[in-house]
């Protein structure tokens, strides 16, 4: 559809706007650009920007020798997948219950779910740490993941989606003798696929970058995710060797960043879909 362009900038205004927009974009991308520059150039060029500086991969081997980033990445993968798997199962079941079963006390139960939108596990660190100590889950992947396993946001999002599924499809499946879980599996989940993708992308990005709770609940290389490993690496082991710090930074962000560059549109749309309720 062609947009009416009566208020589109023209002439000088267009030039100024374009210049402003690009200047802002330059500032916004500068940290990432600097990290890429420094990671791929020798140390002496980390604060000197000359066009003919030689390229090198030496920084990467130095980082991987100095700290177990491979292990950290595996830990992050495990923790992120574990959270997502729990969230998908728990939120799907709950969302179906709230969307299609007008059970006794549903209103109160749903209000209790929504409480988590305001009181996130992120701020309940003291009590949740105590719980994890009692459950003997400190320094394990479930220890990092379980507080996020049931997500109010996921329940809310999927409930909205399930409510928009025509009731006739549900009834038709029931007439054919499908149980509630079979109906959910055959009718609702396939129809909600785009929402699942959106939710998964947002959840993965969020937990890949999560820092404070993993910092508290892990204390060994075997459980630490990338964010915590990076903080310990950059904060303690390295003085001010910027090329090594930037390389480590890039390694921590790389999988998500590459996925974003490849599927830019899906990422932006997913964050949007997940935000607009």
């Amino acid at each position: 559809m062609q947009r009416a362009d009566v208020y589109a900038p023209r002439g000088l205004a267009l030039t100024l706007e374009t210049a402003g927009a690009w200047l802002l974009a330059l500032i916004w991308i500068a940290p990432l650009a600097y990290a890429v520059w420094t990671a791929f150039h020798p140390q002496e060029f980390s604060t000197r920007f000359v066009w003919n500086a030689p390229l090198t991969l030496e920084n990467f081997s130095r980082v991987l020798e100095a700290a177990p980033f491979g292990r950290y990445m595996v830990n992050t993968f495990v923790y992120v997948s574990f959270v997502l798997a729990c969230q998908l199962v728990l939120c799907t079941l709950a969302a179906y219950g709230f969307a299609r079963y007008d059970f006794f006390g549903a209103g109160v139960a749903f209000a209790l779910v929504l409480v988590q939108l305001m009181i996130m596990p992120d701020v309940l660190i003291v009590e949740n740490y105590r719980t994890m100590t009692k459950l003997d889950l400190v320094d394990t992947a479930p220890g990092i993941a379980l507080p996020y396993a049931a997500s109010a946001f996921g329940v809310f999002l999927l409930r909205q989606t399930f409510k928009s599924v025509p009731k006739e499809l549900d009834d038709a499946a029931r007439v054919e003798g499908a149980s509630p879980l079979q109906t959910l599996w055959r009718v609702y989940i396939p129809l909600a696929k785009p929402v699942y993708i959106a939710y998964a992308l947002v959840s993965i990005s969020h937990h890949w970058n999560n820092f404070l709770w993993p910092l508290i609940v892990t204390n060994s290389v075997e459980a630490r995710p990338l964010t915590v490993g990076l903080q310990i690496f950059a904060g303690v082991d390295q003085g001010i060797d910027w090329s090594v710090i930037c390389t480590a930074t890039l390694i921590s962000a790389a999988p998500l960043l590459v996925a974003f560059l490849l599927f830019q549109r899906q990422f932006v749309q997913s964050f949007m879909r997940a935000g607009i309720r």
Binding site: L90, C91, L93, A94, F103, L112, V113, V115, N128, A149
Partner: peptide
Amino acid sequence: SHHVTGWLLVLPAMAFLALFTHWPA
């Protein structure tokens, strides 16, 4: 059975929320 099914569906999520949000709060 309608009420029971509804509760059974939301129960797992509610249990986790109770353990890691309501109770700690």
